[in-house]
């Protein structure tokens, strides 16, 4: 009797969870693809092969690569400095790295306008060298780097803390150099965590909207990333085109999600 009622509760909970995920996550995901193909493949193809869409895709990919490279380098150095040594101000640095997480993406964009924009203190310097940051590609890259800044280091720091420093100390005492220690001892331990952080960073960089929207200036074919291109299409009531372009990002999101799950599983099995 007890067992039976427990089963009802269990099944009800499972069904409720499935319903929630289907309504909240799956239907929106499927609706993008359905709306994109509503007017047939020809219209879909036309929307995604539009030169502006392709240029936006290229800018999005370039920005993502920059963010990924910069934040991976930073993540490794920061995790190394913060977990391999003990020094004053360690916690302050850790907190400062996390700031971009706590901030609205719109504010992240605003911050760069206040530095490099017309009212910014760096504006005269930029003018002297004839450089543009705000309303240009460098601003888009900077804003994206800012919002994805903590992603890699945040994955590595707890992992390397748990690992301890014994093996590295042994190697150092036997005369191994810094790079040697890192590539032979540290990296094999943290590779799945590193990959996981890089995947999260890629996902966020591909889709960043608020921060980029502030600094981009929305110049079609020049400073439009794919999410911004989608916004323009949507506000011009070109719904099918907007969803067609979105479907590119949906496919990328699904790939990212699958990769993330593979990496997570590998990382877990290695720890055990």
């Amino acid at each position: 009797m007890r067992e039976y009622s427990g089963n009802i509760g269990k099944n009800a909970l499972i069904i409720l969870c499935f319903l929630f995920i289907v309504i909240m996550l799956l239907i929106p995901l499927i609706s993008v693809l359905a709306y994109a193909l509503r007017q047939g493949w020809a219209v879909f193809w036309e929307a995604i092969s539009d030169p502006y869409a392709l240029k936006a895709l290229k800018l999005t990919l370039v920005t993502t690569v920059w963010a990924l490279v910069i934040n991976t380098v930073f993540g490794i150095f920061a995790a190394w400095a913060l977990t391999r040594y003990r020094f004053r101000g360690q916690h302050i640095i850790e907190t400062l790295i996390d700031i971009p997480f706590a901030m609205s993406p719109v504010i992240a964009g605003l911050v760069f306008i206040l530095v490099f924009g017309r009212i910014g203190w760096a504006y005269p310097i930029l003018q002297q060298w004839d450089l543009k940051v705000v309303f240009a590609v460098p601003g888009i890259i900077l804003a994206t780097v800012f919002v994805t800044f903590p992603f890699v280091s945040r994955e590595l720091i707890p992992l390397m803390n748990a690992q301890g420093t014994d093996e590295e100390e042994a190697a150092a005492l036997m005369g191994a150099g810094t790079f040697h220690i890192f590539s032979k001892i540290t990296l094999p331990h943290i590779r799945w965590g590193l990959l996981y952080g890089m995947i999260l960073c890629t996902a966020r960089a591909l889709g960043e909207f608020g921060a980029v929207s502030v600094v981009s200036g929305h110049l079609r074919g020049k400073t439009n990333t794919l999410p911004l291109h989608i916004e323009i299409l949507f506000s011009e009531f070109k719904l099918t085109s907007a969803f067609a372009v979105s479907s590119i990002l949906v496919v990328l999101a699904i790939i990212i999600l699958i990769l993330k799950n593979i990496v997570q599983r590998k990382g877990k099995s290695e720890v055990q």
Partner: peptide, 23 residues
């Protein structure tokens, strides 16, 4: 179900935004 939980992190917010608005 477990693998789908992070979809909101992976899906660009603008895409989620226009999908929800239309739905």
């Amino acid at each position: 179900l477990d693998g789908l939980i992070e979809l909101p992190f992976a899906l660009p917010t603008a895409v989620a935004g226009i999908a929800l608005t239309t739905l």
